[in-house]
């Protein structure tokens, strides 16, 4: 007989999961978990399945073998627990929307169809904007902001609903240093509050700073372990199929070879 302890399910758990578009496996045998209050970096070459894994967590790509569970449920039934941050570069900068309106979009589900956004919703939106350091740009047009600021607005949108899980698709791509620091700071605060974070990135230095674990993928999983032991030159070399140069302590660069 063993004592059974009631524990909350892992925010995100992959159990030998294989994802596929139109029956062609895009990413196979991912196995690991994203615990509450921790961050997992998703690292690997372009086209290697990072986006596929993210979409699987969002319930937008079918898991054909193994399992992905989000808050103990199948992903499509757990969307209320997940805040998703897409790449700002994919959005139309001419779209007529202000920063605050974008952030309010994160609360549409809570607001419901027939109610108008109330004082609480606006307060939550402004607080989320403040958390990414953009409280003073609430009325600016989204397209008038810099790329990094747009990315911060999208993080604020996800934060505004206070989800227990955050999923970010390459948030540091093409982002200036100020915005990168603001993003990291907001994510560290979210972790401290118990949020589980899954973030894809090419920036290994950011992965080392922000993420307890790293998942290395290229069509299959190469590592899913604490960041220190996942980001070794050998594993990176195997995953990227190239050469890895170590510049200085903790600074790794991958070059195609």
């Amino acid at each position: 007989m063993t004592d059974r302890i009631e524990t909350a399910p892992d925010p995100v758990r992959f159990t030998e999961a294989t994802m596929a578009y139109d029956r062609t496996p895009a990413l196979t045998l991912v196995d690991g978990r994203v615990p509450a209050g921790q961050a997992v970096a998703l690292v690997g070459p372009n086209g290697g399945g990072k986006s596929t894994l993210i979409k699987a967590v969002l319930g937008l790509v079918p898991v054909v073998a193994g399992a992905v569970t989000v808050a103990g449920r199948r992903p499509a039934a757990a969307r209320e627990f997940v805040g998703y941050v897409p790449q700002a570069a994919n959005l139309d900068p001419e779209f007529p929307v202000t920063a605050r309106q974008v952030v309010l979009m994160g609360r549409y589900r809570l607001i419901g169809r027939l109610r108008r956004p109330g004082r609480r919703d606006r307060a939550a939106a402004d607080e989320a904007l403040a958390r990414v350091g953009l409280a003073d740009r609430a009325n600016a047009r989204f397209g008038a902001l810099s790329g990094g600021q747009r990315q911060r607005v999208l993080l604020a949108r996800a934060l505004s609903a206070q989800p227990p899980i955050l999923v970010l698709d390459e948030p540091f791509n093409g982002v200036d240093a100020v915005s990168q620091e603001a993003l990291i700071e907001a994510l560290v605060r979210a972790k401290d509050a118990g949020t589980a974070v899954l973030v894809s990135t090419h920036d290994l230095a950011v992965a080392q700073r922000l993420c307890e674990q790293t998942c290395l993928v290229n069509r299959r999983q190469f590592a899913f372990a604490d960041t220190e032991s996942a980001l070794t030159p050998e594993l990176l070399c195997a995953c990227y199929g190239g050469q890895v140069l170590e510049l200085d302590a903790g600074r790794l660069v991958v070059t195609p070879g």
């Binding site: 937008l60 969307r79 209320e80 994919n90 959005l91 929307v97 979009m105 589900r109 607001i111 169809r113």
Partner: peptide, 22 residues
Amino acid sequence: AASGRELFLRSFDVEAARAAGH
């Protein structure tokens, strides 16, 4: 009036609309 907000989100960011379960 009933679906305007969702249509607004869908027009701006279809991926996020899907991810949010709209």
